[in-house]
């Protein structure tokens, strides 16, 4: 399983701080699966978020997500 953790606006949109999805997969497939699971609220936020696979930002949709990995979904914000 893959542990997905949501932060800030992504947490609000998904309604949960964390959940598990089956793996292995790729970041592109994971984005699609999470959008399908949570609907348009998360679908709007997700494309703006960095996906960190075990702490490293996934640069492309083909980035592998191994089974057992933690993926952090982090939206950007700049307010100060």
């Amino acid at each position: 399983m893959i542990q997905v953790r949501y932060f800030a606006a992504a947490r609000e949109a998904s309604g949960t701080p964390a959940e598990e999805v089956s793996g292995p997969t790729t970041t592109g497939a994971l984005r699609a699966a999470l959008s399908a699971r949570h609907g348009p609220d998360l679908g709007d936020v997700l494309p703006k978020c960095a996906l960190l696979v075990a702490g490293a930002r996934a640069a492309t949709d083909e980035t592998p997500v191994p089974d057992g990995a933690t993926v952090d979904v982090l939206p950007p914000f700049a307010g100060g």
């Binding site: 953790r5 932060f7 701080p17 960190l52 490293a56 930002r57 952090d72 982090l74």
Partner: peptide
């Protein structure tokens, strides 16, 4: 609102 602090590990690209 949740009263939480969570820490992410981040690596250089």
């Amino acid at each position: 609102l949740q009263g939480t602090w969570r820490t992410l590990t981040v690596h250089p690209d």
